[in-house]
Write a protein that binds this DNA or RNA. Structure first.
Lengths: 210, 210
DNA sequence: TTTATAAGGTAACTATTGTTACAAAGTAAA
DNA sequence: TTTACTTTGTAACAATAGTTACCTTATAAA
């Protein structure tokens, strides 16, 4: 809790940090846990204290797409708008590593917006960040070839999780990139031949040369 | 001005409409005019009264990508965050048809957020809409083949502009889709053979069968 | 330990998209 | 009208990505 206070006080005003302590609920998740799922009512917004959350979305045909990762001090803009407009969740949030969050109840979100300037900045800044990440993804998908997209994916993943090991099967990576397994195996093998990664079963290590 | 009042009063509270009239600046643009350009200071946020605005963004390599169209009563979430954080424009806004806007000065944006609940809802709703459109674009680029993307593009364009004629060369369409001219000509020819469009020089007509 | 299942490697082939090149037709300027 | 330029059509080919099939190897279950 002291650690929480310290982290938040870097960006938010003291009285607000106090309020967050009072009305927020601390929650912990282990890797793979589902923090938010599709069609559930969202009654609080998660603020990430430690670890990484992976945020996904499903389209009309049921295909899932990776929106972004959330790390320390970040919050989910999509969850925020869902809360504000009392809509059901259009997203799924999964713990990509062990995760600690503090859940802010939806009544407070709105109240603090008018009460604390630093909360307003924080929320808008959060929107801008998500926006920019989505735009980068869009550019990546629109202009980059699959090998470059795979490299970008691996870099993002290792950066978000803070470790060089990616514990996913080729199939899982293929799903996140919207392609198929054989293609991913092929490209990963090429990266291994270029000494940019080392492949194991259900796991790969990203080397600094990537 | 009476028309403006009527349009806005559908979604915003009376006192706010009065304030918008007082502090907003009405501006008109003709087709092709640049309303906002990259790297300019944004000192006001446009609220669209009539017509359609096309919002673009440039990536690191200078490639432009279409973000979304703005029509009646809509506003630009990207311009809003730029204003709020006093950043330079990362976007370009072009009049896709003749356009009337009312420009809201940046001091007011923030002030109204705490003063008028309907403004807060409006702004957050606007963010959500832009978010969803970006997500649809992302899904489209990630999963759809080029022929489907072209159809989606033509449908969006005609819907936004409210007319069935698209006045663009094949080259311009290719640029917006991030592909090349020959490919677009090829696909458009196929659509013409299927009686879904009629092609002219610098122009095409979308048929209801599309 | 044997068996079943999941993951990964690879070849051969298909489909889609991108590229180059050039011709034909429309449009604007001289 | 002649000339220059832009736009569109099309063929032929190259590059990239997706698919099917089958094999090997690792892991978990019986």
């Amino acid at each position: 809790m002291e650690q929480l206070k310290h982290k938040l006080s870097m960006i938010l005003e003291p009285n607000l940090v106090k309020e967050i302590e009072q009305s927020g609920t601390m929650m912990s998740f282990k890797e793979g846990d589902i923090i938010l799922d599709y069609d559930k009512n969202i009654r609080s917004m998660p603020l990430v204290l430690s670890g990484t959350i992976r945020v996904m979305r499903k389209d009309e045909e049921g295909r899932e797409i990776l929106l972004y990762y959330l790390s320390s001090n970040e919050s989910c803009a999509m969850a925020y708008t869902c809360c504000m407009e009392a809509r059901k969740s259009e997203i799924k949030a999964i713990a990509d590593t062990p995760v600690d969050i503090i859940a802010i109840p939806h009544e407070k979100l709105d109240e603090w917006l008018t009460k604390y300037p630093s909360w307003k900045s924080y929320i808008f800044h959060s929107f801008t960040s998500r926006f920019n990440e989505l735009l980068k993804s869009l550019e990546s998908v629109a202009f980059q070839k699959l090998d470059e997209r795979l490299i970008r994916y691996l870099k993002n993943k290792t950066k978000a999780n803070g470790k060089m090991v990616v514990s996913l099967s080729h199939q899982q990576i293929a799903d996140e990139l919207g392609t198929n397994r054989v293609v991913v195996s092929r490209l990963l093998k090429m990266l291994e031949n270029e000494n940019k990664v080392i492949l194991y079963r259900n796991e790969l290590k990203v080397l600094s040369s990537l």
